[in-house]
Design a protein around this nucleic acid. Sequence first.
DNA 1: TTATACACTGGGAACGTTCCCAGTGTCGTA
DNA 2: TACGACACTGGGAACGTTCCCAGTGTATAA
Lengths: 335, 335
Amino acid sequence: MKPLNINDIAKAAGVGKSTVSRVLQGQNHVSPDARARIESTIRELGYQPNMVASGLRKRRIQTIGLIIPDISNPFFPEITLGVQQVADERGYAVLLANSGWSNDREEDLVALAQRQRLDGMIINPVHISLAALRAFGHSVVVIGTRAAYREFDAVGSNTAESVQLALAHLHALGHIHILALPGPRGQDSTRNREAAIYTAMQARPDKLPQIHYCEFTKSGGYDAVAALLSLTPRPTAVLCGNDLIAIGMLAGLRERGITVPGQISVVGIDDIELASVCCPTLTTVHKPKREMGMTAANMLIDRIEGNIQSPPQMKKMSTHLVIRESTAAVGISSG
Amino acid sequence: MKPLNINDIAKAAGVGKSTVSRVLQGQNHVSPDARARIESTIRELGYQPNMVASGLRKRRIQTIGLIIPDISNPFFPEITLGVQQVADERGYAVLLANSGWSNDREEDLVALAQRQRLDGMIINPVHISLAALRAFGHSVVVIGTRAAYREFDAVGSNTAESVQLALAHLHALGHIHILALPGPRGQDSTRNREAAIYTAMQARPDKLPQIHYCEFTKSGGYDAVAALLSLTPRPTAVLCGNDLIAIGMLAGLRERGITVPGQISVVGIDDIELASVCCPTLTTVHKPKREMGMTAANMLIDRIEGNIQSPPQMKKMSTHLVIRESTAAVGISSG
DNA sequence: TTATACACTGGGAACGTTCCCAGTGTCGTA
DNA sequence: TACGACACTGGGAACGTTCCCAGTGTATAA
C-alpha cells in the first residue's frame, strides 16, 4: 500500500539507511559489495526515492518553472521544447504555466512557484512588477530584451536587428509607405519594436512608418486590415510585430481581394512553422526559438548550481531574414 | 536569508503553530481574533507556506503530470490549455513533459512522475506498457481511445465518427479512388484509424481506400505525395490521419503543380488553427481539443480527491466536419 | 610497534509542514 | 451545583529524506 522508503531498502539489503542514501546520490565511501547489494535490492523491489522528502531536506526539488503568456501561440512551444531538452539533460523537471497575458495571473503564478519552492524560474514577463519577481527569492531568467528587467539574467532575440532587417528588405524593394503593427499599445515588447523602428529610420526620419496597435494574435492582424485601408496614401507594405499578426493580416487581405505581394507586401517576425505553410508563404525574420529556450535553461541551471556568481547578463540571439512569397518590389499599379 | 516558516508566523502572531496551520488550511476552530492576527501577520511578512513540506506530510503535492508526445504539434497546446485551466481552477499545478514519441522517454517520464510523487497523471501514450503505467501507483487518465488502456480512465475523440464523417463527405462528392494516410505503421492510433475505415466501408468493401503509412508530421504528408502519384488509377482524394499530414501534402502537391481541390481533394483530422490559414484552407474533422483537456483534468482530479470510486470510464467526445476549400466534387479532368 | 590517514558504516538530528491528542474555558441543561 | 458538549489551543510525533558525526577497521609511514 504505502510506497517503499529508504529504510525498507536498508533493511532488505542489510545496511544502514545512510549507506543507501549515499548510493542513491552516487557518492563514494561505499564498498563495492554493499553498493551492489543495494542496487540490486532497489531494482528488485522497484523502489523510487521520494523527491518530495529529499527536496525538503536538500532545499532543492529538481524542478524549474516556465511561465509564458500562451502556449497556443506557436512561438512558445518551440521555446518550451528547448527549455525541456536542457532541463531534462541536466536532471530537472519543468512546471509549465500560462499567464494569458494577465498581470494578476503572472503574480499568482510567481507566488505559486515560491510556495512550491521551485529551484528557479524562466519567465516571459508581460506586466509583472520587479517587486513580485524579486520576491520569488530564487534564480530567475527572463525571456526578452526588456531593460526593466536588467537585474535578472535574460535571453532574447535582437529586436533592433530584426526590425532593421525587415525594414531594409522592404526599402530595398522600393517600399516607402509602410504600416507597422508593433503590438498592443502600452506593452514593453511593443515599445521595444517601436524604438527599433526609430533607430532603424534615423537616416530618413521623414519616411517613418505609420504605427497601428493590435494584439499579438491572428485576429489582431485580421482586424488591422481596416486600419490599413483607411490610410492615404495607402501603404504598400506592412511590418507585423509577429507572425501571427501577419497571418491574420494575410487572411483579411485575401478576403477583400487584395493580392499579396502584388498590391501589398507583408513581413512578419518570429518565423513560426506556420509561416512556411500559409498562403502566400510569409517573408519573416527568423528567431532561434529552440536555442533561446536551451540557452535560458542553461543559464538558469548554471545559476542554481552556483557555477555562475557573476552579475546578470543578457544574451541577445541573432536573427536573420527569411524571404518567401509575401514580399515583392513595389508595383506600378497599387490601388 | 532562510525563508520564513510556520513557527516564525506563530511566534510573531503570538499563537501556536497548529493554529497557524489551521488558518492556512481554512479550517474552523480558530477564534476570529486569532485568525485576524495570523492573517495580517502572514500578509505583513510575506510568508508563503512551503508546499514541499506540506506535500511530504499530506502525501499530496497539488501537482499533476501531463505527458504528451510533442508540444510543437499544434494539437497538444490546445489540450494543454484545457488541462491547465481546470487544474488551475481546482488548485493544482501542471508538470509538462514531451515523450518525443519514444517509448524509453515515456517510461522514464512516468518513473520521474513517480519519484516526484505527483498526485496523478494525464498521458497521451504512444508505446508505453501497461506495467509501467500501473507502476505509477496514482490516478491516471489516458488521452485517446485505445482499447489496450481500458483499465484507466480515458478521454478521446470518436475516431470511428471522424473517419466516417470524412469518408462520407468524400463519397458525397463522388470520390471513389481514395488514398488514406492513417499514421505510422504499427502504432495503435494508426490501427484505430484503419479499423474505423473498415467499419465505415462495410457497405462497399470493394471501394476500400488504399493505405499508405507515414509519420504524423508535415514532412510525413509531404513525402507521401510520391506514394500518391505512383498509384494507378491515381486517387482523386486523400484522407489524412491528422491535419499536419494534410498540410504537408498540400505543400507537396503545390510544389508539383497539382491543384487542390481541382485535381485532388484533401481532408484532414483535428482542425488545428493552421487548417483555417493554409492554402487552400483545409476541410477537416473538428476535435474539441480544449474540452478534451478540461475533461481529462476533471476526471483526474475527481479521482485524486476521491469523488469517484466507480470503474474506469472512457469519454468519447463527438466530432464534426468543417468544410473548407480543400475538397470539391470529383472533376472530369483528373490527370 | 605506534601513529596517522582514510575508506567505510550507521544512528540521530534536521528540513517545515499536518495530524493527533490532551488540555483549557465557556455555555447550556439537568 | 454538576456535567457533558464543544470551540479553541498548543505541543509533540510523523512524513522520508540528507547531513553531521562518531565509530570501526585497514593500510601506510615513522
